[in-house]
C-alpha cells in the first residue's frame, strides 16, 4: 500500500507562538486507512490537520501528503492538492452569502463542474446528511448542528482521496452523529478514501477497522 501521509521527525510551531505544538513526531498513514485522533484541548490536533492541507508549514522534519513535500510545495501545487482533499472544520467555515446548496458543491464549482452535475450532487449529499429541505437556506439560518452537516456534505462532494475532519460531530446529537460516521465509513470503505478524524469521543459502534492516534505534550502516540 502507498503512503498518503508520511511524517518524519515533524515539528510544528506558530510563527508568533514561542512554544512548539507538535514536537519531532514520526508516523505513516496508508491509502484507505481510517484514523482517529484524540487528545486534550489545545494539544495541537487542529494544528496537525492544518499541516496536512498546508496552512502551516513544518518548522522541522519532513511531511509528505499525497506525494507532495509540504515544506517545499509551490502555491499552485498546494491549490491542486487541496482540490482533492475534503476538509471539515471545527468552526464549519461556510460561505454565509451562499445558499446551503451552493456551499455543498463549492469543490465542484472550483473544479469547474457543470451546473447540472452540481445540482445532482448537491441533492444527493443533502439527502445523505438529512438536509434536503434546507437546500435554499443560508448558513446563518441553520442551527450549529445543521451547519456542521453542511460542512460534512461539502467535504464529501467531490469524492476526495483524503478527508480531514476536525470534530465533525462536535455539535451533533447521537442520531446525526451516526449519520456522519456512516458517511465517513462509507467514503473510506467504498471509495477507498483515506480519512483522518479529530474527535474527543470515538464512536462506540464502528464497523470498519481503524487506527487511533493520541496527541499529548507535543507527541503523537498510536494506541494499539
Amino acid at each position: 500500500m502507498a503512503s498518503i501521509i508520511s511524517a518524519t521527525n515533524l515539528t510544528l510551531a506558530y510563527e508568533k507562538g514561542k512554544h512548539i505544538i507538535i514536537n519531532d513526531v514520526t508516523f505513516n498513514i496508508e491509502q484507505g486507512e481510517f484514523v482517529f485522533i484524540t487528545g486534550p484541548s489545545g494539544s495541537g490536533k487542529s494544528t496537525l490537520l492544518k499541516s496536512l492541507y498546508g496552512q502551516i508549514k513544518p518548522r522541522e522534519g519532513m511531511l509528505n501528503v499525497g506525494g507532495f513535500d509540504m515544506s517545499r510545495i509551490k502555491k499552485k501545487q498546494l491549490l491542486q492538492l487541496r482540490r482533492n482533499i475534503g476538509i471539515v472544520f471545527q468552526d464549519y467555515k461556510l460561505i454565509n452569502e451562499w445558499t446551503v446548496e451552493k456551499n455543498v458543491v463549492l469543490p465542484l464549482i472550483i473544479t469547474g463542474y457543470s451546473l447540472d452535475v452540481q445540482k445532482v450532487q448537491a441533492e444527493k449529499l443533502l439527502s445523505h446528511v438529512k438536509l434536503s429541505d434546507q437546500a435554499n437556506k443560508y448558513p446563518l439560518e441553520l442551527s450549529g448542528g445543521e451547519q456542521q452537516r453542511v460542512g460534512v456534505a461539502r467535504a464529501l462532494s467531490k469524492n476526495p482521496f483524503l478527508i480531514l475532519a476536525d470534530e465533525p460531530t462536535g455539535n451533533l446529537d447521537e442520531f446525526s452523529s451516526g449519520v456522519v460516521w456512516d458517511l465517513l465509513e462509507n467514503a473510506c470503505d467504498q471509495l477507498n478514501a483515506t480519512v483522518v478524524v479529530v474527535t474527543h469521543k470515538i464512536p462506540t459502534i464502528f464497523n470498519i477497522p481503524y487506527r487511533h492516534f493520541i496527541i499529548e505534550n507535543g507527541g503523537v502516540h498510536e494506541v494499539h
Partner: peptide, 16 residues
Amino acid sequence: KDRMKIMEIFGAPMML
C-alpha cells in the same frame, strides 16, 4: 475576505 479565504482552502486559484 471570508469567502475568498474559504475558497482558497478548497484550492480555488486567485482568478476564481
